[in-house]
Computed example of a mutant assay.
Amino acid sequence: MDFDFSDDQVALRDAVQKWVEKGYGFERRRTIVEAGGFDRAVYTELAELGLAGLYVDEAHGGLGMGPVEAMVVMEELGRGIVLEPLAQTLIASGVIGAYGADDVKAAWLPRIASGEALVVLALQERGARYRLDRVAATASQAGGAWTVSGEKHLVAAADRADAFLVPAVANGQPALFLVEASAKGVTTTGHLTQDGSRAGNLSMDKAPAVLVCADGQAALEHAVDIGIAATCAEGVGAMEQTLALTVDYMNTRKQFGVAIATFQALRHRVADMKMQLELARSMSYYASLKLNAPAAERRAAMARAKVQLGNAMRFIGQQSVQLHGGIGVTDEYIGSHYFKKLTQLEMSFGDTLHHLGEVSSRMQDTAGVFA
């Protein structure tokens, strides 16, 4: 199997890498965090690079690319620990493109691709944990129009988004709706998250909504799987940069008159970090390549990838802090922000223990060395 990137994929990676290096330095990121964790100007810059339209068909103004291109982009954004939620844009465009009616696609995909509209997934409810089959929000239909009522929490850029993809129970089963932030009955709040990005709560009281997909469970699972694949790729980029920072620090930090990089025990720990990074990278590739597989195969693959990525992110983040010493947790040092990002990514779209349970529940009778 050929794992080399195509010329177009390399060009895309290089373009994003240059933008991160020149346009999204640590000081700009710090300013964005102080201003609330989201900058519309930065999101517009991402859209101008074409990134908001990665999953949007060319007929709707997008690039018409796929999961591998998204993985390449998210790795580079992970290296820069970019705060703006491009993964949410991939989710929204992917789900609307796959499940939405033609009129919904025509109304929203061009706006998403241009960066005019930021659409995010409003999934989390109190008590649901990571379970996708527990939905308390409800939808009702009258005169051919839908309304949605309910509460959603930890919604990415909740008070800065233009619309939300909302799962709600309609006619006794989950369905997926699109609710505009400006609609009557919609209230949002915002707050910083641990890694400095922005999230918030969404409250809907008979808010007008557009039906995206009546089979909400299938669409929601697909949405979360797109998010997992993006999270895995973003984590690889963040881990790679974390390792580079750690090695650079060990080559400059001296004890007993020599660089600590010469200490054999510490070199072994760095080797273990590198091993975890490469295991994570291979599983991120696996997740992206399985994103268009049949639902059962795709769901199993995402759970396996998230287990490996979760273990790797936790290990690399913690080892980096240990090898840095006290400076590794200071706010002034960029390494602490990578650690917080990796910690938050490990818990996004289901933490390691949750997905370990998912892997276990999907094991077949023939699984194991005796199959």
Rank of each mutant, 00 (worst) to 15 (best):
L342V: 07
G185Y: 06
T44S: 12
M347P: 03
A218M: 06
D103G: 02
K184S: 07
R269Y: 07
A122G: 02
A223G: 10
Y338L: 10
L118W: 02
A145C: 04
E58H: 08
V169E: 05
V258F: 14
L46I: 05
T330D: 12
G80C: 12
R126M: 11
T187C: 03
R267C: 08
A214T: 09
Y249W: 12
D215Y: 01
A223N: 10
M283P: 00
E234G: 13
L353W: 08
L176W: 06
L154M: 11
D331I: 01
D225L: 13
Q319A: 13
M239Q: 10
F339M: 11
R129V: 02
G317F: 03
L121G: 01
V169H: 07
V359D: 04
A92E: 04
Y333C: 01
F3V: 15
G37S: 08
L309M: 14
G310S: 07
S288R: 12
R304I: 07
S149Q: 02
K105C: 12
Q194F: 15
Y24T: 01
K184E: 06
I334Y: 09
I96D: 04
D133Y: 04
D102N: 12
V16I: 00
D159Q: 05
M302T: 09
E240N: 09
A265V: 13
L356H: 05
K105P: 06
G127N: 01
R40F: 00
K274L: 11
Y130H: 08
P167W: 02
Q17A: 14
R160F: 05
V166D: 07
A142G: 06
E76K: 09
G328R: 00
H268W: 15
L178C: 02
D2M: 07
M283L: 15
E21Q: 00
C213P: 04
D248I: 05
H354R: 00
G61E: 06
V56C: 12
A371F: 03
Q322S: 11
E125L: 05
R111D: 06
V82Q: 03
M239D: 11
P294H: 08
M1G: 14
M273W: 15
V120P: 01
L220S: 13
G80P: 10
F349C: 08
G36H: 00
F370S: 09
A157T: 14
V169M: 11
E151H: 15
I316Y: 06
D205T: 15
L345R: 04
M347A: 14
H337C: 01
L176F: 03
L90T: 04
L220C: 12
R198N: 13
A92W: 11
M250K: 09
A117K: 11
P167T: 02
G143I: 08
R198H: 14
H337F: 04
S203Y: 10
L54P: 00
E180I: 02
A371P: 03
V10K: 14
V33M: 05
A35P: 01
I96C: 10
L309H: 10
A163Y: 07
A305K: 09
E234K: 14
G97S: 14
G127Q: 03
Y286H: 12
I260F: 11
G185V: 05
H60M: 01
R267G: 13
R29D: 00
Q264V: 14
E75L: 06
I96L: 13
A280W: 02
A59W: 00
Y285W: 15
